[in-house]
Computed example of a mutant assay.
Amino acid sequence: MTREGTFAGNRGLDDALALELVPVTEAAALAAGRWAGHSGESARLAAVDATHTGLRSVPMRGAVVLGAGARGETPALFHGAEAGDGDGPECDLGISVGDGALSESRDVPCALTAIAVAERGAMLDPSPELDLEKLVVGPGFADVVDITRPVAENLRMLAAAKGVRVSDVVVAVLNRPRHGSLAREIRDAGARVHLLEGGEIAGAVATARAERQVDLLLGTGNAAEGVIAAAALACLGGSMQARLVPKDAREHGTGEVLRTEDLVRGERVLFCATGVTSSELLRGIRNDGAGRAIAQSIVLCSNPVTVRTVRSEHRSARQSGHG
């Protein structure tokens, strides 16, 4: 599809633009994947560089609201940076190149690279001093659970709504020391804990995918990644309830309950992610030993509602040179 075709009729944020993001997240994932098992910081910098380069050719006038670096870093993907080729719809961008950063003992840089796009002014812009306490469920269960209720009560309500036993409910929890008591509370209630070794984007989106066996996500994590996950949920019909909480605070948030539509507003939302290492949502980069790298991506659009899984093969420069 030509660029003129992409924006025929002033369609703006649509499925065609979502597909333009696939080469960007793929390039970032491939760049990060080369550092798997080495330096996590090198992987992040490589992914940032690939994302910055790839976004230059995407037809949009984007502003980075949720960035992948600090102001002054090169390349520039910090808060407020411009992205896109300067032609096309005005939009907010949320970028994650480090979601899924595993523990140092595992020494794997990140599980996925992701870009969320929404209409200009539509994304919540949380303070970097704040985290987000989250409760995430799939389509049809938004009114069944409540982040202000005790965990055990939410588990009973969700199990009843799904017609299963509490012992069949799978709860995703970020594997961090701060969640030790939460994991015990879930197990004491009789449900199953699925520990997320990486970040929360993959686990949150998995709750809204019928083929992924995650019923609920609970816990506190990065606020920016929470908003990016909310963008994906807006496309899939999933639901997030959240409360802002100071970083490293061990108590629950006590402020206003934010919902998916508070985190990402507007009628048109796009999301694209590519696996770096395998996660609850996507397979990671695979090298077949013959100079080919295989990538898996998910592409989402809220209007029109579109869900695509994309499998791509990439040949190394040496292989492609041999034709």
Rank of each mutant, 00 (worst) to 15 (best):
M1I: 05
R3A: 10
R3T: 13
G5F: 08
G9P: 02
N10W: 12
R11G: 06
R11T: 10
R11N: 04
L13R: 15
L17T: 12
A18K: 05
E20N: 01
L21H: 09
P23T: 13
T25L: 05
A27L: 08
A28E: 08
A32W: 09
G40Q: 13
G40N: 08
S42Q: 02
R44W: 04
A46C: 05
A46H: 04
T53N: 00
G54D: 00
L55Q: 10
S57P: 05
V58E: 10
P59T: 14
L66K: 00
G67D: 01
L77W: 10
A81D: 14
A83H: 14
A83N: 14
D87F: 12
D87S: 12
P89I: 03
P89K: 03
E90G: 07
G98V: 08
D99N: 13
D99V: 06
G100C: 07
S103N: 09
S105P: 00
R106W: 00
D107E: 06
P109L: 11
A111K: 03
A111P: 02
L112N: 08
L112G: 08
V117M: 02
A118T: 15
E119Y: 11
A122N: 12
A122V: 12
P126W: 01
P126F: 01
P128I: 11
E129C: 04
L130Q: 15
L132N: 11
E133Y: 03
L135K: 02
L135V: 03
G138T: 02
G138L: 04
P139I: 00
G140K: 01
G140S: 02
F141L: 12
A142M: 02
V145K: 04
D146H: 09
I147Q: 10
P150S: 14
P150C: 14
V151W: 07
A152Y: 06
G163V: 10
V164L: 05
R165F: 02
S167L: 01
D168G: 12
A172T: 06
L174Y: 10
H179E: 10
L182R: 05
I186C: 13
I186L: 13
R187C: 03
R187D: 03
A189C: 01
G190Y: 06
V193S: 01
L196F: 11
G198Q: 09
G199V: 09
E200Q: 07
A202R: 10
A202S: 15
T207V: 14
R209F: 05
A210D: 07
R212T: 00
Q213N: 05
D215I: 00
L217R: 09
G221T: 15
I228D: 01
A231M: 07
A231D: 06
A232D: 05
A234E: 04
A234V: 03
G238D: 12
Q241E: 13
A242R: 10
A242V: 11
K247E: 12
K247T: 14
E251A: 15
G253I: 06
G255K: 02
E256G: 04
V257H: 08
V257W: 08
E261S: 11
D262W: 06
D262I: 06
V264A: 14
V264H: 14
R268I: 13
V269W: 00
L270T: 14
V276L: 13
T277D: 09
N287S: 15
G289R: 08
A293E: 15
I294F: 11
Q296V: 09
Q296K: 07
S297I: 14
I298A: 07
N303F: 04
T309V: 05
V310I: 13
R311L: 08
E313A: 12
H314C: 04
S316T: 14
S316N: 02
Q319A: 15
S320C: 08
S320V: 13
